[in-house]
Design a protein around this nucleic acid. Sequence first.
DNA 1: CTGTGTGCAAACTCTTTGCATAAGT
DNA 2: ACTTATGCAAAGAGTTTGCACACAG
Lengths: 146, 146
Amino acid sequence: MKPEMQHDEQTAKDRLRDAGLRPTRQRMALADLIYGSGNRHLSAEELHEEAQQIGVPVSLATVYNTLHQFTESGILRILSIEGAKTYFDTNTSDHHHYFIEDENRVIDIPEGPVAVQNLPKPPEGMEIANVDIVVRLRRKKAADRG
Amino acid sequence: MKPEMQHDEQTAKDRLRDAGLRPTRQRMALADLIYGSGNRHLSAEELHEEAQQIGVPVSLATVYNTLHQFTESGILRILSIEGAKTYFDTNTSDHHHYFIEDENRVIDIPEGPVAVQNLPKPPEGMEIANVDIVVRLRRKKAADRG
DNA sequence: CTGTGTGCAAACTCTTTGCATAAGT
DNA sequence: ACTTATGCAAAGAGTTTGCACACAG
């Protein structure tokens, strides 16, 4: 291991190789954005915008392609969220989300021993890919307080 | 109570009045379809098609309007499901779903004591509207058997 | 050099909207 | 009669696709 090689670029490159994807400029830039700041949820549009902001000229089509390739490779997951936009999650393990009704926003439920009890066995020939818990939150009305 | 008045139409009418909606021909027909056969999940397109099949000429726009009005009135719920289409559920209580990856299909998890453990308190000023659990299922591969 | 990835713009799907007409009270 | 709902078609949002060019190996 070379001492000056701990850049995110290197990490991104490895991640892409692991996933069987060619580490192209755009994919590495997107991987940096996606994995550069902890677990997060993002839509194609948001990621595209972020890329533009840091001066990486990647097209929206490529962002979509990349997000789906990452998903197929198992390094991203699609969130089970209602609404028009598709949200991707960098945390591919079983974990859970709040969905803010007013704002159509998704946030992680703080890590903790959240668990599902008494989940029945799936039907014949099926297996559980994963479990998503979505807790829909709404703003308390002033009248409801106290 | 008139002896010949136990039609679904009557039920639908009541349901609509309860929800504060005018019981129009279209809404009653849609309510019949929606609630006529137990709990179910449906998309606007599916409902529209069903209406056509039984000869109720309702427009797709009206189906969308109606589904949203029903949702606002609390007699329908939107499912937290990824994907382009919005699915509505006639069961408005906390209950849960399988999502079949291959087929983009949603089915109820059989009634049972499924419960969530250790759900943290929601953030300040927020309250839980409801909890959705989505268990994503995938077909077992033949190679994985045994 | 060869094959895959990228960008652009057009196509596609699902959903919403505006306005004239029809139906409900 | 007056108000609200409906239907149609067009607009809108998000996503996907096809093809020529560019880049990675």
